[in-house]
Design a protein around this nucleic acid. Structure first.
Lengths: 137, 137
DNA sequence: TCAATATATTAGAATGATTCTAAACTATTT
DNA sequence: AAATAGTTTAGAATCATTCTAATATATTGA
């Protein structure tokens, strides 16, 4: 039964009950070597292929939102019609290929440190993210 | 009649006919000292206040899209339900206050140059934008 | 200036992503 | 195993945005 027990553990530790649906979604999102970028439509398609029975739209959204608020995934700030998520929750940056819609991670180590010369009194910085838009030549 | 003639000029040079609606929207967007951040809902509200007759939703969207494709405004990459635009079309960055939803510009000169150590062969860089999420202390 | 043509505006319908609802179900606790 | 708390579901509702096709306005060129 795969590494379901890891996922059970993971869900429990975040106060989420390990249900069939959540475990299935965990498997799609986290049982991979590479970071996974997706939107809800992608995810629904993959789940449909993997499963006999399908998971309702509402559940997919509920689950994704739960995972997001527990910090298992994060939303990517991109201006597209659909919301994109990333299974890489560490502080990192993106290349967005405007020609193909492809999204590629890059990490703090791939950029020289970003030093702000402007600072805002009374505020605290939550995150600094760089979006590099690229196009095919 | 204000600086309508500037706007007429501006529209014409981009191949857009200077119509009543477009001029009115120009006035709201560009007749100001500071950069203006807005979404379509904001814009509709402002127009409603300023005008006797109101402009239809479709026209507001058409106009905004025309302005965007002519480079008069640009879309901001933020993950919110609505699409945000900025009258500052130069390359610049944003602070987004997650507590208040407020958006603040900052410029290239307010950050030390962003040097990418990773490069992608066969691609060209269209833009590099930094989004700094902040919160009230 | 006037008719012909090209482009814009409009109200309302259509679309599509996301959230809500309330009923049925499943997991946990006692 | 009964009671309670949390989940899932189908389908309805919502809300931003786009489409449609009819009407109106702007531009062109005789």
């Amino acid at each position: 039964m795969k590494n379901y027990s890891n996922f059970v553990e993971k869900l429990r530790s975040a106060g989420l009950r390990p249900t069939k649906q959540r475990l299935k979604i965990c498997e799609v999102l986290f049982d991979r070597k590479e970071t996974f970028h997706f939107n809800v439509e992608d995810l629904k398609k993959i789940l449909k292929k993997k499963l006999e029975t399908s998971i309702s739209v509402a559940t997919v959204y509920n689950t994704i939102n739960a995972f997001k608020s527990k910090g298992y995934i994060k939303e990517i700030s991109l201006n597209t019609d659909k919301t994109y998520f990333d299974t890489n929750v560490t502080s990192h940056h993106h290349f967005y290929n405007v020609t193909t819609g492809e999204l590629i991670d890059f990490h703090d180590k791939d950029v020289e440190e970003i030093k702000l010369k402007k600072n805002l009194p009374g505020k605290k910085i939550k995150s600094i993210e760089v979006l590099v838009k690229i196009a095919n030549k």
